[in-house]
Computed example of a mutant assay.
Amino acid sequence: MPVITVDGPKLTKEQKEKLVKAFAESASEIMGIPVQAMVTIIRECEPENVGAGNILACNIKRMK
């Protein structure tokens, strides 16, 4: 049973559904394993709990 783990920002339920579907289907196709065998874990992280280099993510300006 492959496990896909995603660490990222807070997401809506709809975003999580799309993410799980996309990752599971893609991994299933690439690995040749049934999509039902895939497990996806989403861990939401607040920007003030994440650092990039020596800067907190909440202090990094978003690129648009």
Rank of each mutant, 00 (worst) to 15 (best):
P9I: 10
M63W: 05
E48A: 02
P9E: 13
E14V: 11
T40M: 08
V50Q: 09
P9V: 00
F23I: 08
M1A: 05
A27W: 11
V35I: 02
G51H: 12
I41L: 15
V39N: 15
N59A: 07
A37M: 04
Q36E: 15
V3T: 13
K61N: 07
L56E: 04
G51D: 11
K13T: 15
D7H: 07
T12P: 08
K16I: 09
E14R: 12
K13D: 15
V50R: 05
R43L: 08
K13Q: 15
V3R: 11
S26H: 08
K16A: 01
I42V: 14
K64E: 15
I33M: 10
K16G: 06
R43D: 01
S26K: 07
V20K: 07
E14W: 07
G51Q: 05
M38D: 04
A52N: 14
A37I: 04
A22Q: 06
E46C: 10
P9N: 11
I33Y: 03
K13F: 14
I42L: 11
A37K: 06
V50H: 01
I42H: 08
E48R: 02
Q36I: 04
M31C: 12
K64A: 12
A57Y: 13
P9R: 14
A52T: 15
I33P: 04
M63H: 04
I60H: 05
K10G: 01
